[in-house]
Write a protein that binds this DNA or RNA. Structure first.
Length: 502
RNA sequence: AGCGAGGUAGGGUAGCCUGGAGUGCCCGCCGGGCUCAUAACCCGGAGAUCGGAGGUUCAAAUCCUUCCCUCGCUACCA
C-alpha cells in the first residue's frame, strides 16, 4: 500500500488561531482524505511552534510564563484542528514534545558533522517584534516597517549554517521538480531568489536574547537553537526520527508540506539545504497557499477584523466553513472571507443546490415510491451518467494536482446536473399519470447521482458525506466506487444535510 | 528599483500556456415555467469597447511590444 505523508506548517502560538490557519488545516485535510480514498496509507502531522522569542514577549505582556501561554494557545490550535475536522496523527509542540528536543539536536549535530555549522560574529539593527535584523534601507524612517519601533543595535556571536554551499544543488532540485513547488509561479520566485545569491544564515541566538526560552545548542549552553531550525524539525519528529526508526523509514520523506506563501523560503531553501547537509531524504513537494483577507482588508489586530475560526465553526458548523474555504478561496492565491458571502454560499449552494437535490431525490423515493428502488437501468440517463463519471475523473485529477477549488466546483456541477435532470424529467408527473416504472427509472438515475455526490464530497465535507451515504445504507469508500452504479436503493429516513441561515 | 501576481458585464471568478463568433461558473437584477423539494428547482433575458495603445494573423481576452493602474515579496509573517 503506498504511503502519503503530509504536514501542515506549525503556527506560532503567540496568539489565537485565525481564519488563515483554518484554511491551511482544511487544505491539508482535503488532500489527505483524498489520498485515503485512493487507498494510500496517510499520515498527517501538525503542531505548535513554541520556542520563539515572540512567545516569551507575548507571555510577559500577559503576566504569564511562556510555558503557560504555549499550553493555552496550543490548546486552542488543537481545538481548532478538532473542530474543523482535521484528521491528524500527531500534534508536535516544540517546547514540550520529548522526542522533538532529540530531533532538533540530532539534526544540528548532523549538520555540524557535515562541516556546515560555524561561529561568526554578527551585528545589526534588530527588531524584537520581528525577531530579525534589518538593514538600513529596509527601515522606514529609522523604524521597523512592521512595528514602527526603533530597532536596537545588537551584536553577538552566533552559529551560522553554510547555506551558500548548497546554492547550485538547490537550484537543480527545484528546477527539475525533484522538490516540486506548487504552483509554478512560486517555483519561479524561489528560483529567482536562489539565483540572486544565497548567504549563510544564523541558526542560533544568545541565551540572553532568547530570555532562556528554547532548545539549547548541543555542546554550547550559551546558545539557543534558532526557532526555524527547530520548528522545521517537527516534520521529522512527527514520524519518529531519532526515536522510531521503523516508523520513520516507512513514512519519510514527506510527500507534501502545505505552507503559506510567507514561509515558503524556509521550506524550499533552508529546510532542503539542512536536510541535504544532514543527509536525510528530501520532501517531494511543497504546496503553497495565499493569505485570507477579510471583507477585502488585510486581517490585523489594529483594524480589529481578525476572524476567529472557532467562533465561526460554533456558529455555522465545520462543514460550511470547510466548503467556503475550499470553494471561495483560490487554492494558491489570496482570497477573501466575508460572513455575508458565507451565508449566501450556505443558502444558495449547500442548501439550494446540493442539499436540495439530495433531499428531493430521497424524499420522492420515500413518499412516492415506497422508499425502495430496484435496479432499473439508467435508460435515457446513461448519457448523463457518462458525463458525470467524466467529472468524477476530472475532480480526482484536480485533487491530485492540489487544485482544490476547481475540484469542488466540478462536484457541485454534478449536483446541478442532477437538479436539471430531475426537473426535465418531471417524475412527479409520471407518478400522477400512473407510470411508476418510468418514475422509478428517473429516480434510479438521481439516486445514483446523489450517491456519487456522497462519495465525492468526502474530502471536503466528511460529515455531510457520511450523513448522505448513511441514508442509503452506505459509508464513504474508495474513490473507485463513485463510478460503479449501485444496484438498488433503500431510503431509510430522509434528513436534511444543511439548514438555511437567516 | 528588482522580481512576482493581477486588471474579463453591478460584484466575485474561470478561460489565456496549446489563437477561431465574448464562451462558462457563483451572486445580484428582470421575465417566464414547475410544484417532487429547505419559497428550494428549471428556462430565458438585460448588462462587457475582455486596463490603454500599437503589432503579428484570414482570425487576438488568448501571441509579441509598450504604457497605465492595483497588490505581494525583496533574508526569517498561515
Amino acid at each position: 500500500m503506498p504511503k502519503f505523508y503530509i504536514t501542515t506548517s506549525i503556527p506560532y502560538v503567540n496568539a489565537k488561531p485565525h481564519i488563515g490557519h483554518a484554511l491551511e488545516f482544511v487544505q491539508a485535510d482535503v488532500i489527505a482524505r483524498h489520498r485515503k480514498m485512493r487507498g494510500e496509507q496517510v499520515k498527517m502531522t501538525t503542531g505548535g511552534d513554541e520556542n520563539s522569542l515572540k512567545i516569551v514577549l507575548a507571555a510577559e505582556k500577559l503576566g504569564k510564563s511562556a510555558a503557560e501561554l504555549c499550553e493555552e494557545n496550543s490548546g486552542r490550535f488543537k481545538e481548532l484542528a478538532e473542530m474543523i475536522e482535521l484528521d491528524y496523527d500527531a500534534f508536535v509542540r516544540t517546547s514540550i514534545d520529548p522526542g522533538h528536543k532529540k530531533v532538533a539536536q540530532a539534526l544540528w549535530k548532523a549538520c555540524d558533522g557535515a562541516g556546515d555549522i560555524y561561529k561568526k560574529k554578527y551585528g545589526g539593527l534588530y527588531c524584537v517584534g520581528c525577531e530579525l535584523f534589518y538593514t538600513e534601507n529596509e527601515l522606514d524612517g529609522g523604524l521597523c516597517p512592521e512595528h514602527k519601533t526603533k530597532p536596537e543595535f545588537v551584536e553577538e556571536e552566533n552559529y551560522f549554517f553554510r547555506l551558500s554551499k548548497y546554492q547550485g544543488r538547490l537550484l537543480e532540485l527545484i528546477e527539475s521538480d525533484q522538490v516540486k513547488i506548487i504552483p509554478d509561479f512560486r517555483k519561479t520566485e524561489m528560483l529567482n531568489f536562489i539565483k540572486s545569491g544565497l548567504s549563510d544564515f544564523s541558526i542560533s541566538r544568545s541565551i540572553s536574547r532568547s530570555h532562556g526560552w528554547g532548545l539549547k545548542v548541543p555542546g554550547d549552553e550559551s546558545q539557543i537553537i534558532y526557532v526555524w531550525f527547530d520548528a522545521l524539525g517537527t516534520y521529522l519528529t512527527g514520524v519518529g526520527f531519532a526515536s522510531d526508526q521503523k516508523e520513520f523509514d516507512k513514512y519519510w520523506p514527506a510527500d507534501m508540506h502545505v505552507v503559506g506563501k510567507g514561509i515558503l523560503r524556509f521550506h524550499a531553501i533552508y529546510w532542503i539545504a539542512m536536510l541535504m547537509s544532514a543527509k536525510i531524504k528530501l520532501p517531494k513537494s511543497i504546496l503553497v497557499h495565499g493569505y485570507v483577507t477579510v471583507d477585502g482588508q488585510k486581517m490585523s489586530k489594529s483594524i480589529g477584523n481578525v476572524v476567529d475560526p472557532i467562533e465561526l465553526v460554533k456558529k455555522y458548523g465545520a462543514e460550511p466553513i470547510r466548503y467556503y474555504l475550499m470553494k471561495e478561496i483560490s487554492t494558491f492565491q489570496d482570497g477573501d472571507f466575508s460572513e455575508t458571502k458565507l451565508r449566501d454560499v450556505i443558502n444558495n449552494e449547500l442548501v439550494g443546490n446540493l442539499g436540495n437535490f439530495v433531499n428531493r431525490t430521497f424524499v420522492f423515493i420515500n413518499s412516492k415510491l415506497d422508499g425502495r428502488l430496484a435496479e432499473t437501468g439508467l435508460g435515457e440517463g446513461a448519457l448523463l451518467m457518462k458525463e458525470i463519471h467524466d467529472l468524477v475523473d476530472l475532480a480526482d485529477k484536480l485533487l491530485e494536482e492540489g487544485q482544490l477549488n476547481f475540484a469542488i466546483l466540478k462536484i457541485l456541477e454534478i449536483s446541478s446536473m442532477g437538479n436539471r435532470y430531475f426537473q426535465e424529467n418531471e417524475p412527479w408527473k409520471l407518478v400522477k399519470e400512473g407510470d411508476n416504472e418510468a418514475a422509478r427509472e428517473v429516480l434510479f438515475v438521481c439516486a445514483n447521482i446523489a450517491r456519487i455526490l456522497g462519495i465525492m464530497l468526502y474530502p471536503f465535507m466528511p460529515c455531510a458525506s457520511e450523513e448522505l451515504l448513511a441514508q442509503i445504507g452506505e459509508k464513504p469508500g474508495p474513490i473507485g466506487d463513485a463510478k460503479k452504479i449501485a444496484a438498488s436503493f433503500e431510503i431509510s429516513k430522509p434528513r436534511l444535510l444543511f439548514s438555511k441561515v437567516e
